[in-house]
Design a protein around this nucleic acid. Structure first.
Lengths: 186, 186
DNA sequence: AACTGAAATGTCACTAATGTCACATTTAAA
DNA sequence: TTTAAATGTGACATTAGTGACATTTCAGTT
């Protein structure tokens, strides 16, 4: 049950915060108040309904919640396709990136909920990818699933620096499904 | 999702506010109304499209940042810094990416006017980067400057698949300056 | 050149919506 | 816990929308 603050709505609508509060007060926008001093919260669905009712544009980042997506970063196409099949069954829209540059652009463009990452791609340091991603608050909610043929220690290190789950190659579809379904509901 | 008020558009177009409202009413300019009394808002992209459609001049302040930026993709920090110095003197804001993944994210995030690209970065295929970038209409205006120690034939191939300029390592600051100043004014 | 009429644009006054500012207080992050 | 960032509020300043009407623009005609 995702909610928005008055400030977030203000920036979505490119309008002053004061104005948003007035909309809520007038009943034009449905919302509720927190117990504290009455800070406002608006359900995403109410906000979208509000936008539609007034023919206002709906930010892409709000629409995206309908079907969460996953970015599969792997240079071996067969592996990527196999992950894609599992992801699709778990209910994700999926995208495949076979190189670091593509991965970066697609991550930024599609803002997926989950990213699977092959640690041992030629010429790409998976650790620095995790590092760099975790440094950016924009991706704080992104779930990173590390997939690699490397040993346990490497996988553990990945978890330490910010990955959310790890799978050792070859992985079973069942294990991957478990992980994805867990993230799907978060 | 930046928007403009009818008043802002009026002053951009040096036209009366009343006229802007009529444009929106007639459907000549796409816009939407705020819930209050129906104050008009126009998405910047719609406004630009409107200006282009009527061959009207586009204010520089709408085209993005006041100061254009450059993304420097190079794994050798000293080289990157050196490019950065030249770029700064040519009037660019600059960002450095030392890996493909970072480069992708930064390209998408900062939308620079120019990207310099080291063709021979370990484990990153510069050609596929150019290819992938050129496939996306979003980056049709991005200027790609290829920098490499490879031979002429490699540089020519880069130009063929979509790079806008090439420099052979070691390059002179003067040559780089020439290239950047040319792109600065485009 | 001058005339003409229709369409587009500008003007004005008035009202209502929206923005601004300073400050208290809460919320979230470190 | 400490600190920084958001939020709510009231009073007040700006800006936008509207209708009626004046003015300009512009192509076609004399």
């Amino acid at each position: 049950m995702k909610t928005l603050t008055s400030g977030e709505i203000a920036s979505y609508c490119d309008v002053n915060l004061r104005t948003v509060i007035r909309w809520i007060e007038n009943g034009k926008l449905k919302g509720f108040k927190l117990p504290g001093r009455g800070n406002n919260r608006v359900l995403v669905e109410d906000f979208i309904e509000f936008l539609e009712r007034h023919d206002m544009p709906i930010p892409a980042s709000l629409k995206g919640d309908a079907t969460p997506s996953i970015l599969i970063v792997d240079d071996e196409m067969p592996v990527a396709k196999s992950i894609q099949r599992v992801a699709r069954r778990a209910g994700f829209d999926s995208y495949i990136a076979t190189g670091g540059f593509q991965a970066g652009i697609m991550l930024s463009q599609y803002e997926p909920k989950v990213m699977t990452l092959d640690l041992s791609m030629p010429g790409m340091d998976g650790y620095s990818v995790i590092d760099f991603t975790r440094e950016q608050s924009k991706y704080k909610d992104l779930k990173i699933v590390v997939i690699s043929a490397l040993d346990d220690i490497s996988l553990e290190r990945a978890l330490e620096i910010g990955a959310d789950a790890s799978l050792q190659k070859p992985f079973s579809n069942h294990d991957l499904t478990m992980v994805l379904e867990q993230f799907m509901s978060m």
